[in-house]
């Protein structure tokens, strides 16, 4: 598989279908129907390994709980061995002391593997900008989806999971996605004007209008935010071409 990986993203996989299954769509491009099928299957049966370290874990519990119900997305069953999991949730701050453990867990996972950075700390270190913490797990392992928030709201987590599922379904690797904010349209206008200048009475008036019922209903908001969120709208941060550190053990 090494030659394919080395040859860049846009080159179609030359591997035979059976080999491609092992490689797990590493070649950044989907060609065969079989891979499409596998992607579809994978998308709805993500086996997750929650690497829960900090406060975000509380929100993770809530997402797994009855109200937000992660199980609806087929990502219910936690595997408590990295070797059986294909989705690594990194939930919370990773300290320098923890970093070797995180790296090792990632390396123990079999291909194809996906990483979801849950929360600001996992994404970039957050406001723990000091001697003890790793400024983002992407310094240690590649990340597929970043979910910002401190902690992210469960809705944002579900958004992130859906983004990841889309990505898995298309068989894409590399290229990190960031969950975009769900904006209340009336507030989005305010934000766009720039926070520094748009303060004072104008802003208060806008906020007042928002609270006094000129705002769209919840249903409309949801529809809008879903319509406004195709995959193209997310930022592609980096192309990760790093070769893997271990061989396939098939």
């Amino acid at each position: 598989m090494a030659d394919i990986r080395g040859s860049g993203n846009a080159i179609p996989s030359k591997a035979t279908p059976s080999k491609a299954t092992m490689g797990g769509g590493d070649a950044g491009f989907v060609t065969t129907r079989l891979e499409e099928l596998l992607g579809w299957a994978r998308k709805y049966s993500l086996f997750q390994y929650p690497f829960v370290t900090a406060c975000c874990g509380m929100e993770f519990m809530a997402v797994a709980g009855p109200r937000y119900d992660l199980a609806r997305f087929g990502a219910e069953a936690p595997r408590f061995s990295p070797r059986q999991a294909d989705l690594l949730w990194v939930v919370g701050t990773v300290s320098q002391r923890q970093a070797p453990a995180l790296r090792r867990i990632y390396e123990q996972m079999g291909d194809p593997k996906y990483v979801l950075a849950f929360g600001t700390c996992a994404s970039c270190g957050g406001f723990y900008d000091n001697y003890a913490t790793v400024p983002g797990i992407d310094k240690i392992i590649p990340v597929d989806v970043y979910v910002p928030g401190c902690p992210p709201r469960p809705e944002a987590v579900l958004d992130g999971l859906m983004l990841l599922m889309e990505k898995v379904g298309q068989g894409k690797r590399g290229g990190a996605l960031v969950v975009p904010p769900r904006e209340v349209p009336a507030m989005a206008k305010i934000r766009k004007k720039g926070t520094a200048v748009f303060f004072g009475q104008e802003r208060m008036a806008a906020e007042k209008a928002l609270t006094e019922g000129e705002a769209p209903s919840v249903g409309e908001l949801l529809e809008q935010s879903l319509a406004e969120r195709p995959v193209e709208s997310v930022t592609i941060l980096s192309r990760d071409g790093e070769p893997k550190k271990h061989d396939d053990h098939h």
Binding site: T53, A54, G92, T93, S95, R97, Q98, A101, F127, Y128, D129, N130, Y131, A132, T133
Partner: peptide
């Protein structure tokens, strides 16, 4: 312990 030491007091 110490795997979640995030430098609270220094911060």
């Amino acid at each position: 312990p110490g795997y979640l030491h995030r430098g609270f007091e220094k911060s």
